[in-house]
Amino acid sequence: MRPRRGGTAVQADQLLLLVAGGDHRAFEELYGLVAGPVFGLVRRVLRDAAQAEEVAQEVLLELWRSAPKFDPDRGSALSWVLTLAHRRAVDRVRSARAAGEREQRDYLRSSATAFDQVAEEVEAGLEREWVRRCLDRLTTLQRQSVTLAYYEGYTYREVAERLSLPLGTVKTRMRDGLTRLRHCLGGVVA
């Protein structure tokens, strides 16, 4: 087991406060903590490694630029950067979808994805399994409403259309789904 360099694991929140002071080394450590989740999330939504790399790079640079504006009272550093990453990925996938590129890319991506998925399963298998276990406990409509929006980048109107449900029902399923997920994933009570 190779020890991580120079005490990498000082926590992300605290690292981000150091980064806010212009600390390059702290940013390097922070990169080690957040780059995997950022890249993985963006790739999951975009389903394209090259585009994901581009968007992840934008997000990580934005993390550096905006670090002085980080307010720890409003949430964790990880939550902050992942929210930003998700927003960027979703904006990108929607404009691509609007341009009709998505279906084509989905069709073309087959071999690269097969390889990547192996690595992904080793790297993120633990958390993934845990989240999957909890997703399985949602009702089908809750699960579909949450994952179509979060992982596929569909708006709740599009989700309603795809599932043939009224808008109000989809909003409720999203809310109940997330709340049940929280309960299942557990942890320290806020």
């Binding site: 998700h86 845990w130 994933l185």
Partner: peptide, 13 residues
């Protein structure tokens, strides 16, 4: 809660 969904997708860049 949504961030939990993000973490489960982590992949080495």
């Amino acid at each position: 809660d949504a961030v939990r969904l993000a973490c489960s997708a982590a992949t080495p860049p």
